[in-house]
Amino acid sequence: MIIAERKPIDEILGFLSKHQKVLVLGCGGCVTVCLAGGEKEVGILGSELAMARSKEGRPLEVVQKTIERQCDFEYLEGIRHIVKDVDAILSLACGIGIQTCAEAFPDKIVWPGVNTKFLGVNLNVGVWAERCQACGQCVLDKTGGICPVARCSKSIFNGPCGGSQNGKCEVDPDTDCAWALIHDRLARLGEVDSLREIMAIKDWSFSRDGGPRKLVREDLELESGK
């Protein structure tokens, strides 16, 4: 799941300073699940913005709406009539949703309301941790289902580095050393010997390093061959 966090209010107020009426647009996807941009957060932010602007003596009219997903054009299509009456949209979706929103409404300013953080897991209510970096070529088969790319501070493939102590990473004592986890898990599964092999140099071209990625599956395209 995509994990996001609301931007600092000052930044948002800065974006909206010249507007009188904005749409705070929530998304029912990942950002609802990670408690950053669902209907509840839309309500809270809406109220906070209204209060902040009242305090400044420049009232702000806040329209609130949450749609199923902002990363699908069809859902955005459904709010065109609301969008036309506002000065700008403050999108609480992840970076994908914000961009889709901007693409769907080319004549409207779309402001980002959240910082999109990472792809992660919900460990507990209010606690999230990174799990995947979308590197494009999964190595979890070799590392006992624990990703060294996303979870090792140095993304090394033949760890653990010399900073690993008591299963913790040198960069942050609250972070587990991914390689210690890999080692322990493989040891538990009786597969630790597989780590004696040197893992090959990674092909990063499947990752972001190969330029913006695009996936086309011709077998699924509606009008293939076009």
Binding site: T32, V33, L35, G38, E39, K40, G43, T66, V125
Partner: peptide, 8 residues
Amino acid sequence: CASECPGK
């Protein structure tokens, strides 16, 4: 639960 629900 009602007050925690992020989707209201």
